[in-house]
Structure formats: structure tokens, C-alpha cells
């Protein structure tokens, strides 16, 4: 096999890890609360700025800045849930989606207002590994590893803890669980916190690889939605698999075509598949 193709495949795999992490949080929120956060990628963007400012401007150690950014994303997510989602939990789901779209505009424009449209990066150059002629970005490798750890952590939380069980139960049957004495509202708040915390984690990993600017959410937000829908909205395992399918299409497509063409390919694949199987690849 062509060594550059192999490199593309490996890089696609690594990209898939981050996409998987992004889709986990969104899927969790959708599965439990039945809301699509159109502004999910903007929460990530905000957390990326948090890392950037704390690290470069205030001189915090990177790990501490990342931890603070995760807390920041969590608080932001809680605000989104409590201020925007909760008042309209009873109305049509599409209204909730649109309301978070308003949040998208708000965060994006606020970032423009505060920071301008400059592209900013941490200025950290992580080494590039060479393995038998294949070049692998170290930051991507770290991102992949942490994404996997995050996914496993979420899985253990959902399957092994009492609260996690309650979260899964709500996702399965909203009404009955209320009757069984589970406080839905509390579970919703918890879910939003975890989901946005994962967005914060993803932000820490993305900021190592990409410049941050107010509109970065628009570049990988749509890909995240695509991954979630492809896996079956709310289906976390499906989303996980879909993340790797999409990232491979983009990476391998990018090897043969210009990168936009590769992304077009991924979106077209998505549209076609969703029109054949609206329930997603793992849906019933």
C-alpha cells in the first residue's frame, strides 16, 4: 500500500477520536433530554478561547488552563440548559433546537466582539513522530488517547454508577421514570453538565491542533451533527463508529481530492445514507 495513503488513514483514525468525543457529549444530551444543541460547537469554541487566554495571557500552566476550561464549558452548558432549554422543555423539540441556534449566534458574535476575528493559537509546537516513514502528529495522538479515555470514562459512568443508570433509564422512558421517583429535572441538569464538560475536554484537545477564531464552530459543528445523526441520534455507540467512518472519508478523500471535495464527499455520503436509513447505521 502507498505509504502516504497509510498516513492519511492513520491521521483519519486520530481525527476520528476527537470527532467521537465531540459526538459523545452531543449524543448524551440528545439521548436524555431530546434536544439538539445546535450551539454545541460554540461551547467548544468558548472553551478553546478559555484555554488560549489562560495559557498565553495569564501564563497558567497548560493542564491547569485545560481544567479551568472544562469547568468553564460545564458552567456555560448549565447556563444554556437552565436559561434556554428549561423554560421551553414543554414546547416542540424543534423550538428548543432553534433556541440553541440563537445561543450559537450569541456566542459567536460575543466572541467576535470580545476577541475580534483574529486566528489565535497557543504557539505550542508538539513534536511529529516518525514511524517507518509515516508522520504522525503528536498532538493528534494525545487527542486520540484522551478521547478514548473520555469515552471509556463516560461508558463506565453510565453503566456502573447509580446516577448513570438513572440517566440511561430517563433516556429510555421519560414518563415512566418520573413515576418511579426519578427527578427528571436533576438528571437533565446533570446530563447537560456532563455533555458540556465533554465539550470542554474536546476543546482542550482541539486547541492543540487548530487555531481558535469565533467562527471555528461553523467548521466542525456540522461534522459533529453529521456524525451523531449517522450513528443514530442519541445512540452513543453508533456515534462512535460513525465518527471513524466520517473521519476516514475525509482523510482518505483528502488524499485523492482537495480537502473541501473530501468534505463534500462526507456530507453527500451522509445525506444519501440518512435518506436510505433515517434511523442511522445502528438504529432499529
Amino acid at each position: 500500500m502507498d505509504i502516504y495513503l497509510l498516513e492519511a488513514i492513520i491521521n483519519g483514525l486520530l481525527l476520528g477520536g476527537v470527532l467521537a468525543l465531540l459526538s459523545l457529549g452531543l449524543n448524551l444530551i440528545f439521548g436524555v433530554i431530546d434536544v439538539v444543541w445546535i450551539c454545541y460547537a460554540e461551547v467548544v469554541m468558548a472553551a478553546m478561547y478559555a484555554v488560549f487566554w489562560l495559557y498565553t495571557f495569564y501564563g497558567w500552566p497548560l493542564l491547569l488552563a485545560c481544567a479551568a476550561a472544562i469547568v468553564f464549558a460545564t458552567v456555560l452548558g448549565l447556563l444554556v440548559h437552565i436559561v434556554v432549554i428549561e423554560p421551553i422543555l414543554g414546547s416542540a423539540p424543534i423550538n428548543q433546537l432553534l433556541a440553541t441556534g440563537g445561543v450559537l449566534f450569541f456566542l459567536q458574535s460575543l466572541a467576535t466582539l470580545l476577541f475580534g476575528t483574529d486566528f489565535r493559537n497557543l504557539g505550542i509546537r508538539l513534536p511529529v513522530l516518525e514511524l517507518g516513514g509515516i508522520f504522525i502528529s503528536f498532538s493528534r495522538l494525545i487527542a486520540f488517547g484522551i478521547a478514548l479515555v473520555g469515552a471509556v470514562g463516560l461508558f463506565l459512568f453510565l453503566s456502573r454508577t447509580y446516577l448513570g443508570t438513572a440517566v440511561r433509564a430517563i433516556a429510555q422512558d421519560r414518563e415512566v421514570m418520573g413515576l418511579m421517583g426519578v427527578n427528571e429535572r436533576r438528571i437533565y441538569v446533570l446530563t447537560s453538565a456532563i455533555g458540556s464538560g465533554l465539550a470542554g475536554l474536546a476543546a482542550c484537545l482541539l486547541v492543540l491542533q487548530y487555531d481558535v477564531h469565533p467562527f471555528i464552530g461553523l467548521t466542525f459543528g456540522p461534522i459533529t451533527f453529521m456524525v451523531c445523526v449517522l450513528g443514530g441520534l442519541g445512540n452513543m455507540i453508533g456515534g462512535f463508529i460513525a465518527a471513524f467512518i466520517i473521519s476516514q472519508i475525509i482523510a482518505v478523500g483528502g488524499y485523492y481530492f482537495p480537502i473541501e471535495a473530501a468534505e463534500v464527499l462526507a456530507f453527500v455520503f451522509f445525506i444519501v445514507l440518512i435518506l436510505i436509513r433515517p434511523q442511522g447505521i445502528l438504529g432499529k
Binding site: V83, V84, P87, I88, N95, L98, A99, G101, G102, V103, L104, F105, F106, L107, Q108, S109, L110, A111, T112, L113, G116, T117, P214
Partner: peptide, 19 residues
């Protein structure tokens, strides 16, 4: 000077409208 001020208010208004 305040590029984005309009859209920030706009975004907040939209949330209020929908709610």
C-alpha cells in the same frame, strides 16, 4: 468598532423570541 455587537444582541433576542 463593535463588530458583532449587533449580532450579539440579535442572538440574545432570538432566544427570547423563541422562548
Amino acid at each position: 468598532h463593535f463588530v458583532g455587537a449587533a449580532n450579539t444582541i440579535y442572538g440574545a433576542l432570538l432566544v427570547i423570541f423563541i422562548i
